[in-house]
């Protein structure tokens, strides 16, 4: 009974940590994307940087946050956010820019403003890519929220690491299984939504 309550609390803490970070990441990414839409140099800089950072192991990112910001909930949120920010921006950007140029031309040709082109041509075309970015970021946030327990983020990760240090299998499993359940749930539900969202003409 005690352990059930403990698991529930840890799970909530874990979810709150992961998705606060994801939400902030999404909010921060919007202005950056808009900026890069109008500035090719900035755009290529962001893409390069994002590709580089994606290669760095999550553990290293989480660890390096400590000397820079310290430990606790806020540094944990920042570490996760840093990690999810780049896939979000990158995917959205790719989605917005991989539009058939002739489509853009003809849209401008019939008199759409720059903003209307984004709203009615680029954005609908980018949905699948943006969505894939969100899916990837959500699963990533879940994964890193485990690691951030090492720097005082709390949640399910704490249970796992406590279990590891004390060789307490029950505790390890109590932490691990919910994390996996969340991952599978995310993967499953996102796949379903993805299927609904994909325009009929793109489905094979």
């Amino acid at each position: 009974m005690v352990i059930t309550v403990e698991i529930l609390e840890a799970t909530l803490e874990h979810l709150f940590l992961a998705y606060t970070a994801l939400l902030i990441g999404a909010l921060v990414s919007i202005p950056l994307i808009l900026l890069s839409l109008y500035n090719a140099k900035l755009a290529s800089l962001i893409m390069r940087f994002s590709n580089l950072v994606q290669a760095v192991p999550s553990f290293a990112v989480v660890a390096v946050v400590v000397p820079l910001i310290g430990i606790g909930f806020t540094p944990a949120v920042i570490a996760i956010m840093l990690r999810v920010l780049l896939p979000l921006i990158k995917n959205t950007y790719i989605g917005l820019f991989n539009v058939d140029p002739s489509l853009i031309e003809s849209a401008k040709g019939i008199g759409l403003t720059e903003f209307q082109v984004i709203r009615y041509v680029r954005l609908p075309n980018a949905y699948p890519a943006i969505f894939a970015g969100i899916k990837f970021a959500a699963i990533l946030a879940n994964s890193i929220a485990v690691l951030t327990a090492l720097i005082g983020g709390g949640g399910l990760g704490s249970m796992i690491f406590e279990g590891l240090t004390n060789f307490n299998t029950t505790k390890i499993l109590a932490g691990t299984l919910p994390v996996i359940a969340i991952a599978l749930f995310l993967d499953f539900s996102f796949s379903k939504i993805e299927h609904w969202l994909t325009p009929v003409y793109l489905q094979k």
Binding site: L52, A55, V56, P57, A60, V61, A63, V64, L150
Partner: peptide
């Protein structure tokens, strides 16, 4: 890295973290 975090040893964390990042890139 883990040792660094546990001992709260900023130097180790920074150096190792940077090195891991560099290697990965």
């Amino acid at each position: 890295l883990q040792n660094g975090i546990q001992l709260y040893d900023m130097g180790t964390i920074l150096v190792t973290g940077a090195w891991v990042g560099f290697l990965a890139v």
